[in-house]
Design a protein around this nucleic acid. Structure first.
Lengths: 292, 292
DNA sequence: CACACCTCATAAACTGCGTCTATGACTCCC
DNA sequence: GGGAGTCATAGACGCAGTTTATGAGGTGTG
């Protein structure tokens, strides 16, 4: 089901280096091994991805398309690895990060990747907790920097805006709202049974205050994946971070429903005035607060 | 370097099914195998991802974060597989798709994934060629549907808007433009040596006509990856599809430069009036033209 | 024009990882 | 206290992918 990843790595290396042998060297395997990986991938799919010649190898048109997809895969894999590495409770860490689930899921791994390339020596530590707990940890010094997605910021901590998260209302393609032309109003939203995160989460807080009413609950769940699954299953429209459903929207598995409500919320980084940030923490801050 | 993918699959299945044994069943392996995969992943990273109990297993907080990242990875893998499958020159295919590189790279695989889930029997065939060639193939009947990203549409074919692609001007963080507050003007763009796609590509065509001048070339390359690499290396600002650099922007490896120019362009699907579309082709069309 | 140098492919042996079968320990619940 | 579920452990097996060693083909050069 999930093969070819090593082969895809070879493909990318060949694209960059122009030769199977040098690609092998880069990946620290022998040339026949690299060759075999490529050949088995080509055989599996019945495609010719690489044009071999006596003066090196270059990708075919198909190969270039596949390389593009492979790069996207590798990007996610790298992000996951960066996240995993940071999740490890380590001895000599450099930056202790606390982040809420949404930010940890969709932004932190990218930042960690960038941090790692800027400062290979850095060993960040990541804790994934809810927004309130993030604030608490930063205040207590258990985390050096914290990332939250709530609108009300603590007064006693240093804050800086790092971006915007937009909530999306998404419905299965068969849902009546999927084919509306007019935005859904707050009244309608309050009347419809919805699929929501649990109270206490930043996502839910944002939605509740934008709605200014008590929502009607079809299902409450703690993980984004569950919400998405429920919406797809037709249990009801779900309210989730737009970033989390980009794939499903592109694929037409879910449809975004327009609304009157302002569902944007600032993403904020927190740190304590009292403690000075390490150089690594400052670098992370700089990466995160890139001029959007 | 790229391990744990099978372990990540187990993790996702455990999250969904609540038990290692049932996860194993879903993945068509035995329970000890699934257990071993998980344990080796946990050992590798020094984390506890799954809380085992006599009444089943559920993810820890760390596990939930990892599962989110894993889902993103699997999504890309699925997209790549769908693309690979469609790339295969097949005998009994159902829809022959032609798409330009940008669309093939970032949208088609998602659509194919959705198509596959709607019509598991479908066997789409994908050709990745430039915009002019796409039109030609549809006209000649060598492709059933074509996707292009140029503004001038052929009069003799049926067309429908499927979305918008926005070009982004991106520069390395060290580049002077990276820290500007004012948009870059057409004059400035024309004066600066830029990293661009080759003439004839849809991307280049859009840029040239928006610029309405002859650009100054720092480097011309045929693949998006090369452009990105060149921009990161500081050879000059690059002009690429915004979708292609989302990761680099999030990670702060590149910075988007604001501009006066309108760099949006419609994405269009083409087909021939003469030939009737297969049911599968129609389904694909419906997926692609989801109400944005 | 021949030789050196690069490319990639082939062949055979080996290593080891991951899997399966079989079993056991534990917890919960009736 | 038995039964039904959970997951872990142990040992044997099989095979996939690797390495080393070699060969074949094209390119360029003195």
């Amino acid at each position: 089901m999930t093969p070819d990843l090593e082969a895809a790595e070879v493909l990318l290396a060949v694209d960059e280096l122009g030769s199977i042998g040098r690609a092998a060297e880069r990946l620290a395997i022998t040339q026949p091994a690299a060759s075999a990986r490529l050949r088995s991938m080509e055989a599996r799919w019945g495609l010719t991805l690489v044009e071999r010649s006596a003066r090196g190898s270059h990708l075919t048109a198909d190969g270039r398309a596949v390389a593009g997809w492979a790069a996207a895969v590798m990007e996610q894999v790298t992000a996951m690895n960066a996240g995993l590495q940071a999740l490890r409770r380590d001895h000599d860490r450099d930056v202790r990060i606390a982040a809420s689930l949404t930010i940890a899921g969709f932004l932190v791994p990218s930042w960690l990747g960038a941090l790692r390339s800027q400062r290979p020596d850095a060993s960040p530590q990541l804790a994934v907790v809810n927004s309130a707990e993030v604030t608490e940890r930063v205040r207590a010094g258990a985390a050096d920097v914290g990332f939250i997605e709530t609108t009300d910021l603590p007064e006693d901590l240093a804050t800086r805006r790092v971006g915007t998260d937009t909530l999306a209302i998404v419905a299965a393609p068969g849902h009546p709202w999927a084919s509306r032309d007019s935005p859904v109003t707050a009244e309608e939203l309050a009347a419809e049974p919805l699929v929501l995160r649990e109270p206490g989460s930043g996502t839910r807080g944002t939605f509740d205050s934008a709605l200014a009413r008590v929502p009607n609950i079809a299902l409450e769940a703690g993980s984004t994946a569950s919400l998405i699954g429920a919406a797809q299953a037709g249990i009801g429209p779900a309210v989730v971070s737009a970033r989390a459903v980009r794939g499903q929207l592109d694929r037409g598995e879910l449809v975004e429903v327009e609304t009157d409500l302002d569902l944007r919320r600032p993403l904020t980084v927190l740190w304590s005035w009292d403690r000075r940030l390490s150089a690594t923490a400052e670098a992370l801050l700089r990466i995160a607060t890139v001029p959007a």
